[in-house]
Design a protein around this nucleic acid. Structure first.
Lengths: 210, 210
DNA sequence: AACTGTGAAGTTTTTCACAGCC
DNA sequence: GGCTGTGAAAAACTTCACAGTT
């Protein structure tokens, strides 16, 4: 079976692969070359059976009695997730959050490179933020089209999120990571994911003693 | 049945409540006073049956034929999640990310207030960031203990995350939101959640045309 | 007529447990 | 002895569909 024949792999499985990848990269940094579903499971707090079953969707990556070659497995998972290439990403919103995202070194060598930083405010446009010069939202469409950018990170106020998302999709963006604390409606063929720290905090407070 | 009798509510249900709350607050801003499981479901892209079943775990919040009183439901969900009180939160790490978190206005009136910003670097300590003065990690334990802080947001390098988390737990913290791209091991009675934008991006690239 | 709350049915996800291999 | 890959069993989760209420 080829890596990525995508014959209905459950989405929940896909969602765990980046976690496996992250843990594997860590193991690699620790100079290890082989691991097992048990070791990975211990680190990630996921059962070893779960990990084996997840990986088995894409073919036999392990060796019985031995485990998994870390370098080999990393390469395979990167293939599956299509992050052996480098994706260009646009960031919209040059407030504190957009600036922090633009400075973040963690995208490098995990498959992504920030290519542009946009904002609508005349005060921000033209400002230098790290290696970027803030560009006007008015030229966003043209630039994204021209460079074939498929991924965007949204760091604008909640009020503007839907409108900007619509413009991005119109320009050809097919995956949006939305930091605004609001739900956005997108067509079926566009991916959307959310980051809202407050939802995580509120999830945890349920379990705290008052 | 009392709100929060917690008779084994599935964790996955708890995880959706903050989303309902967020959408309800939005509806309230739009001057609406009543909504339905269908309207909420449309906005959140969740089935109406799911929403009704989730809410039914905590008692009958709606009225047949009418729907849900928004203000009433917000109050009940805030009770369930224990965010009718204000939790003090410590932020560790005063890099770009910690600074962005410290400036973020979105915690206010969703149940959280940032109380302290800590860093280990002498260059950062004493610096003024918004309304905070960066405090040394060496005094973290004492301050967190003294003020009874139960929640922390971790914005330190991956290498330091486990060590700092251990110190936080030692000091009495019971919920950690970790922004470092690494898994952390915590005792059973400590909550942990993760924010790593790259895992979201890698999840989405699986579905993109190469 | 519109909507909730909920058992029952259906589907998905996880775990078990073991044959087969190193 | 240690480990994977995997059918089968178990558990968890979602949807259906409708009685009951406003």
């Amino acid at each position: 079976m080829s890596v990525r024949s995508q014959a209905e792999i459950p989405d929940i499985v896909i969602g765990r692969l980046p976690l496996y990848l992250r843990a594997l990269r860590r193991l690699q940094q620790e100079e290890k070359s082989v691991t097992s579903s048990h070791e990975l499971g211990r680190r990630l707090d996921i059962s070893s059976a779960q990990i084996r079953k997840d990986l088995s969707h894409f073919g036999g990556f392990g060796k019985q009695g031995t485990g998994y070659q870390i370098e080999f497995l990393i390469d395979k998972l990167q293939d599956v997730l299509q992050v052996n290439q480098e994706w260009l990403v646009a960031v919209i919103g040059a407030g504190n959050l957009g600036i922090a995202i633009s400075h973040y070194r963690g995208f490098q060598d995990r498959g992504f490179r920030i290519a542009h930083l946009f904002d609508i405010s005349p005060k921000k446009i033209g400002q230098r933020i790290g290696e970027f010069v803030v560009q006007p939202v008015s030229s966003m469409r043209e630039i994204i089209c021209a460079e074939g950018i498929k991924i965007a990170m949204l760091a604008v106020p909640a009020e503007d999120a839907q409108t900007v998302a619509d413009q991005l999709i119109e320009a050809g963006v097919r995956a949006i990571l939305n930091y605004a604390p609001i739900n956005i409606n997108v067509p079926e063929d566009v991916q959307i994911q959310y980051i809202d720290p407050v939802t995580h905090l509120q999830h945890m407070t349920f379990y705290l003693d008052a």
